[in-house]
């Protein structure tokens, strides 16, 4: 187990800087980027996914514990159901408003 890195705040500070950078990048893309709205939305969703990964890796220690493989599989399955629910609902309702 990689314990040593967790006893210095360096790991957390890097995570925090990343999360601030990603937040302000998303704000800038939304308000100022000279690109079509659809592309702006795609970029901020990608930035949010990176932000999620930053929290998991730097703060939540996802890769720790004896059951780390299972907790990652469980999380991926949760994400799969979430994506299917959200994307599926939007897809269906697109045709509802036509």
């Amino acid at each position: 187990m990689e314990q040593t890195q967790h006893h210095s705040p360096k790991h957390h500070i890097i995570g925090f800087i990343w999360s601030l950078l990603l937040t302000f990048a998303a704000l800038w893309v939304t308000l100022k980027a000279p690109i079509p709205v659809g592309l702006r939305l795609t970029i901020i969703v990608i930035l949010a996914i990176f932000q999620f990964v930053v929290q998991l890796v730097y703060f939540m220690h996802i890769s720790e514990g004896d059951s780390k493989v299972f907790q990652i599989i469980n999380l991926l399955y949760g994400i799969f159901v979430a994506v299917a629910t959200v994307a599926g609902s939007i897809w269906i309702m697109l045709y509802n408003t036509m």
Partner: peptide, 21 residues
């Protein structure tokens, strides 16, 4: 608790889906 968080992701996903549509 990680399994619970997986279920929470799904709970919020349903609310996000409702809001977005």
């Amino acid at each position: 608790f990680w399994i619970f968080l997986g279920a929470e992701i799904v709970l919020f996903a349903t609310l996000f889906a409702t809001y977005l549509v």
